[in-house]
């Protein structure tokens, strides 16, 4: 529908303008205090754009003609065209800044097997990751993974684009640090702190006491991977009141637990951290193995979708909440300390 497209584009062209209009943001975000302010534009309806197309166009034109200064009003110090090339930064960005300020997100942000916010990413240009695409979007800030695509990073820097390397967060403390860093880069420190406060509040509500007799849990993934200490999953499991079986078996953050060991000495809660359907070829075969299905039939088990733990973002708190709920269902551990 070309008509809708056109209207949408026109409305977005006025993005900074609408952001300037007092009351617009507060009004919508006030409906759901749990959702950060920035989340609001993701659900910004297209309908007003259609209904008030003429009015919008007039308003835009008026503002553009009448006072270009107005457009700059609240955004003078902050980045206005932000591109993210990193799945984890994508998701934090969507929760942190107004949608109109995001010029592009990585294509992974639209993948429901990996991203927590597919809805939010819809409609924002998807970037595969080449410097050329990024330049075409005319960004004033580009977020990249610290250790990924060094060639693209250096090329963008040489061409004079402001590039911020965002490290991967694999603990709750690192999540807070990464949110603060991104908020600092985009110039939304207050919003960032609000996200962290919300994250900490939910985390503390979900956190279970570290009793002596905690049950064992294991985050079982494709290729028999099981995350040990040093991984976000480990911290989630421990926060929810479990002992991580992978830590008991001295596995590292990317450790592997042979299927046999799992069958002979299973955890009290088997967490399926990947869905077998996500991996149709061989890597997911361990999840479809009859022996694993047998264990799942005899022990408590839980499916924890990959987007919830793949990235260290404030939304990862939902994984702790789900694990804590499973912990309450399970009751006390069957094993001794």
């Amino acid at each position: 529908m070309p008509g809708i497209r056109q209207h949408r584009t026109r409305c977005w062209g006025c993005g900074p303008v609408s952001h300037c209009e007092a009351g617009w943001g507060e009004e919508v975000s006030a409906r759901d205090p749990r959702v950060p302010v920035s989340h609001r534009p993701a659900r910004r309806p297209v309908a007003p754009c259609l209904g008030w197309a003429a009015a919008w166009t007039l308003a835009c034109a008026g503002l553009l003609l009448g006072g270009a200064l107005n457009i700059e009003c609240s955004l003078a110090a902050s980045a206005r065209r932000i591109v993210s090339l990193n799945l984890c930064a994508d998701q934090i960005l969507l929760d942190l800044v107004a949608r109109e300020r995001i010029a592009g997100l990585s294509f992974l942000a639209r993948d429901p097997t990996m991203s927590t916010n597919v809805e939010g990413a819809r409609g924002i240009p998807a970037v595969q990751g080449s410097a050329e695409e990024v330049l075409a979007l005319g960004p004033d800030l580009v977020l990249v993974g610290s250790y990924s695509t060094p060639a693209t990073q250096s090329l963008l820097r040489r061409l004079g684009v402001r590039v911020a390397g965002i490290p991967m967060a694999s603990s709750f403390e690192e999540i807070r640090a990464v949110v603060r860093q991104i908020a600092h880069e985009t110039g939304d420190e207050a919003e960032g702190e609000a996200l962290i406060v919300d994250f900490d509040r939910r985390l503390e509500a979900a956190r279970a006491p570290r009793t002596e007799n905690r049950p064992f849990a294991l985050a079982y993934q494709v290729n028999s991977l099981a995350s040990g200490p040093g991984s976000l999953l480990h911290e989630m499991i421990e926060a929810a009141g479990f002992r991580n079986l992978a830590a008991d078996r001295t596995l590292g953050p990317g450790g592997r637990l042979p299927l046999e060991s799992l069958v002979l000495d299973p955890p009290d809660l088997l967490i399926f951290a990947n869905a077998p359907g996500d991996f149709r070829t061989v890597l997911g075969d361990n999840l479809r193995h009859p022996a694993v299905r047998y264990i799942a039939g005899h022990q408590a088990s839980l499916h924890l979708p990959m987007p919830l733990w793949l990235c260290g973002t404030p939304r990862a708190v939902e994984a702790v909440e789900r694990l804590a709920a499973a912990r309450r269902d399970l009751g006390a551990g069957k094993r001794g300390p």
Partner: peptide, 8 residues
């Protein structure tokens, strides 16, 4: 254990 022997 039997599961390990026969299924794995």
């Amino acid at each position: 254990a039997l599961l390990v022997l026969f299924e794995i």
